[in-house]
């Protein structure tokens, strides 16, 4: 498990945890980002991370990208 900020473009990962208060978690959940969801990293070049979440592009600020914990086990197992 590692923070989303360390992912490379093209990588497919599963969200494991979101570090933050309930407000932040709810906000991410409403955009389709919650533990168990598989996402694809579209762009990650040291700036913001751009993800494909349920077919939509979602930008994550650098700071937040360190608080979303992902892993690559369980991909495709849903």
């Amino acid at each position: 498990m590692w923070p989303l900020a360390l992912c490379k473009p093209g990588e497919k990962v599963v969200v494991r945890d979101v570090i933050g208060g309930i407000g932040v978690r709810r906000r991410l959940e409403a955009m389709g980002l919650y533990p168990g969801e598989e996402v694809e990293v579209i762009l990650a070049s040291g700036g913001p991370v751009i993800l494909s979440v349920k077919g939509c592009r979602v930008g994550i600020g650098r700071g937040m990208a360190f608080k979303i914990i992902v892993s690559n086990n369980g991909i495709g197992r849903r």
């Binding site: 933050g20 932040v24 906000r27 991410l28 955009m31 980002l33 913001p48 751009i50 939509c56 592009r57 979602v58 930008g59 994550i60 600020g61 700071g63 937040m64 608080k67």
Partner: peptide
Amino acid sequence: APLVMELP
């Protein structure tokens, strides 16, 4: 607040 935004 953390920055999370949809990018249409």
